[in-house]
Simulated assay, not measured.
Amino acid sequence: MESRVRNICSFLGLLVILLRHSVEAQANGDCPADGRTWVPFGQSCYHFVHGEEDVAKRYTIEEAKNMCRGFALLIVNTTSVNNFVVQYSPEVWKNNVNIWLGLYYDTDDDQYKWFDDSVVSFKNWVEGGSPDWDIPLMDKCVVLHSTTGKWENVSCTKDTENGVVCEAAQKPVVIGKKNGSPLLSALVILSVIAILGVSAVVWFFHQRSNSGTALLPSFEYHPPFRAPSADQTCLVEAEELEETS
């Protein structure tokens, strides 16, 4: 009995693994399909802007924002994203470039913020800090060096940089929709049904092994109580009088 339960549990675990991989495969996001090359990484997609010429063009921060066409300039909130940009940059640019970051200096809160007004949780300034004494607070912007990954303060209005990276959130793929596989969706549904069925069988054998008896209790038949009729009552009383006389 115990070996049978173990086999059922092993089968149940296998179904759970298959279901998890199926859901993960369906849950992968999708990058924008706008004719540009988007590179997926983490929960976002990245477009590295570059031209056909050997020497990369230079753009102001406003030109860089316009080139992203409704998407965000590069946001770097983790070390892994920072390293990804450094590792992928040689695929786009031959030499070191300064990549615009989607940062601005909020004079009200006296701190840097991303263009979506989120707080900067990760920083990677050049060693010794980035000197910005000659840059007005309202004119502070930040670039990322493509070879080192270090950040540096620059002027938003006076400096032009040659690295532009746009960022977009990956779109979730809904199971059973256009980008989903009908066969995989059916597998997920059947897996859920199988897991529920096997779980019920495991519970049944577990309860049976613990009780040592049948799950359904045995019942004894007891006929329903019926009151004696008037004739039967008179007969009983006559017999009692006869015995006492």
Rank of each mutant, 00 (worst) to 15 (best):
V81L: 07
K57W: 02
V76K: 03
V201R: 06
L73N: 15
Y59D: 14
Y88M: 10
K171F: 11
F115E: 14
E239M: 05
R226K: 03
D132W: 00
R6W: 07
S89H: 01
N124I: 01
K178C: 08
L137R: 08
L187K: 02
V173N: 10
G35A: 07
T148L: 03
E237A: 12
V119W: 06
D231Y: 05
V188E: 12
W114S: 06
E53R: 10
V165N: 04
P223V: 01
E237K: 13
V236R: 07
P172I: 00
C166K: 09
I75L: 14
I8N: 11
A227S: 12
L18N: 10
W100G: 02
N95D: 13
V92M: 08
E167W: 13
E152T: 00
T157Q: 11
S80V: 04
S218K: 10
E63R: 07
P32T: 03
W38Y: 08
G149S: 05
W93K: 12
D54E: 11
H50S: 10
K57P: 03
L103I: 08
R6E: 15
V173G: 01
K113W: 02
M1Q: 14
V126T: 09
I17Q: 01
V192A: 14
G42M: 10
Y104P: 06
N28F: 04
G51T: 15
D110A: 07
F84A: 11
E240P: 05
L137M: 08
V142Q: 09
Q87C: 01
G29I: 00
G129L: 00
W93H: 15
E63N: 04
L183G: 00
L184I: 12
F122S: 04
G51M: 12
V188H: 02
Q26I: 09
L216Q: 05
G29Y: 06
V86E: 09
S229F: 10
K57C: 13
E152Y: 01
F205C: 12
E24Y: 00
P32A: 05
F204V: 14
N77A: 12
F122I: 04
I193D: 10
D106I: 01
E239I: 08
K57H: 07
L216E: 09
V86Y: 02
L144I: 05
F115P: 04
K150Y: 07
C68L: 09
F48E: 12
L74N: 07
K57E: 15
T37S: 11
L15C: 12
A214N: 13
S185C: 06
K140L: 07
L74V: 12
R4P: 02
V142A: 05
W38G: 02
L73V: 13
A72N: 15
W133A: 11
G163D: 12
V5M: 15
N179K: 14
I193S: 15
G212A: 06
V236Y: 04
G102S: 09
S89I: 02
S146Q: 10
N96W: 03
L216R: 06
N95P: 01
D109Y: 06
N162I: 00
N179Q: 15
P40T: 13
G42V: 03
V192P: 05
M1N: 13
H21G: 12
P228Y: 07
N124Q: 00
S245F: 00
S10E: 14
N82F: 06
K94I: 03
L144W: 13
A56W: 00
S199T: 05
E152A: 00
P228M: 10
